[in-house]
Nucleic acid binder design. Structure first.
Lengths: 332, 332
DNA sequence: CTGAAAGCGCTTACAG
DNA sequence: CTGAAAGCGCTTACAG
């Protein structure tokens, strides 16, 4: 493979100094038009493209941002539309501002260590962290690198870094209140894994809202996947055959619950009302269509990215909470 | 922000030469144990991490692989489980072998140009290309960079680079044959966008299989999204109210078709049989559960990655086709 | 406006 | 086994 042309080669070809070539390449205004022209011609002829590593080394910048997804072993990330949303929205946003995206999936302890090395090695200018697990050591260790980092989602430990999240508490309250307004009496919930802040907040709001009306909580645990929702629903039906409503902490689990209810011969919403959380695309295609809480996921990812950009430029940024919205369809 | 320690600082601290520090860092065996120890101690004390840019510059390697997703404006990628699968499987696989992943979403002409610059700039050692659109100029232009690149999915232009794909033709034939075996007489199809090779191959197999039995084709066009499947189904019902089966070229469109059929009061599979393609997770949760063709998406992504690794090490690699499997559930 | 020179932080022959 | 020196390909003060 032929070696790619360097700045030096371009300078020789154009008959000017390397400094001048560099200035033209970087669009500096202080270059005579005649020089600019010959340089540009030489660049085109040789097919010159600046070497990234050399540039990074001297400028101490990389123009790349890491998206770090702390993926628990069970694989939250795998099939969750959230993952694609975040990656896509963030990466579009970053591209618009001239950044490259480096994606890091950190699952094992081992890979977590590598992320730290990676950030410490100066490979990126900043990072977006997606870590839902409250027990995850990554946020703390990454924050110690001193690099600008923002979190997509509130962190269990406050003060580590700025974050953007949707209003989990408000959304869950809306959901349960909607069920209450419909006259539902035995309202169960399928919670997400309790080491995730989003799951904690949604469960707490469910509990508080019911408590205010003197009703008791009926809780089954899932892990935000469809299958876990189906299983939790089965358990709920065993525990309390009389229940007439379920609030699933996300749409995926609601979809699983819908399947179990169908298999058990319960009609939705006639026998049991079901409400989810997130308003993923699939919620419009379930039978019956899923009533849910819209959490602005794409928007959240965009805001997270913007927050990072702010942090990068001003050095300061404050958390933001995005409002949710009740979307009434057929299931409740 | 304090400047991070350099090799030089470690050498000074340990009282040895930079060469020795470098050797220890890189695990070279030709280092006296005593030196190794003092160096390691100094590294730990100072919290030294090698600078990536400097390393890349001198070694002419980056240890990073780009995953380039050529995302058409309509946003194939957005909500398609395929996207997450590929990114996830490839990135896990690459991490295991010590590579970083750089994710590039190339939609616009503008961003396509930037990808080329990025690759030409020596930022990565190789790339995985996900480009479904047969008219996409990216495969050709990227292949010209001379970098090792493999394609996830067969390319319209042969010979550009090695690829991995599932057996679209075989799978579609299985699907239509299954419908035929059930005694279905008017079998329609919802095709994917015809500039994508997967859609072309699936449609061609549908046509060929029907032609062999003297039946006529009934085709509606979608773009691989749920909504397009719902719309295509509506049109199909208008055009031919007598149809008794539909082969959707992917599961997402089949899910859309299911909704339209439900709204139109058609029972599935009694009135109309529906079969999809891909066997995404959601196919198990539709009502009725979706009969489909399993295309090993995760497997495909893993194989694509391995192919790239082969190419990187041996300089040669040949295309691979993965077999599909009929998964019979309730809808057909 | 232009060029010569220094330097970014590493690795790697080359002597010893 | 160890160290001094050159060099990877750029940018950026500094003179002129």
């Amino acid at each position: 493979m032929m070696r790619r042309p360097t700045l030096h080669a371009v300078a020789a070809r154009a008959g000017v100094s390397k400094s001048s070539v560099s200035r033209v390449i970087n669009g500096e205004p202080t270059v005579a038009p005649s020089i600019r022209e010959t340089v540009l011609a030489a660049v085109a002829e040789l097919g010159y493209v600046p070497n990234g590593a050399a540039r990074n080394l001297v400028t101490q910048r990389t123009n790349t941002i890491a998206i770090i997804v702390s993926d628990p072993p069970q694989g939250l990330v795998s099939d969750d539309p959230m993952f694609a949303m975040v990656v896509r929205a963030a990466s579009r946003e970053l591209e618009r501002t001239g950044f490259q995206v480096s994606l890091v999936l950190a699952g094992s302890d081992d890979s977590r260590r590598r992320v730290e090395q990676y950030l410490a090695g100066g490979h990126v200018d900043g990072a977006i962290l997606v870590s839902m697990d409250g027990a995850d050591p990554l946020p703390a260790s990454l924050s110690r690198t001193g690099l600008p980092i923002v979190s997509h989602g509130r962190l269990a430990t406050p003060g580590l870094m700025p974050w953007v999240d949707n209003d989990n508490q408000g959304g869950a309250t809306q959901a349960v209140q909607h069920l209450l307004d419909q006259g539902r009496r035995r309202i169960a919930t399928i919670s997400g894994p309790l080491d995730m802040t989003a799951a904690q907040e949604r469960l707490a709001a469910y509990r508080d809202t019911l408590k205010d009306t003197g009703r008791r909580s009926i809780v089954a645990l899932g892990d935000f996947t469809r299958i876990s929702g189906a299983e939790a629903m089965r358990q709920l039906l065993d525990d309390d055959p009389q229940l007439d409503a379920v609030f699933a902490a996300n749409d995926l689990m609601a979809i699983g619950a819908l399947r179990t209810l169908r298999e058990a011969g319960r009609r939705v919403p006639d026998d049991v009302a079901v409400i989810g959380f997130d308003d993923i695309e699939a919620a419009r295609y379930t039978a019956p269509a899923l009533t849910t809480i819209r959490s602005p996921m794409t928007d959240q990812a965009v805001r997270t990215t913007q927050l990072l950009l702010d942090l990068l430029s001003t050095g300061a940024a404050t958390p933001v909470v995005l409002p949710t919205e009740l979307i009434v369809r057929e299931s409740a």
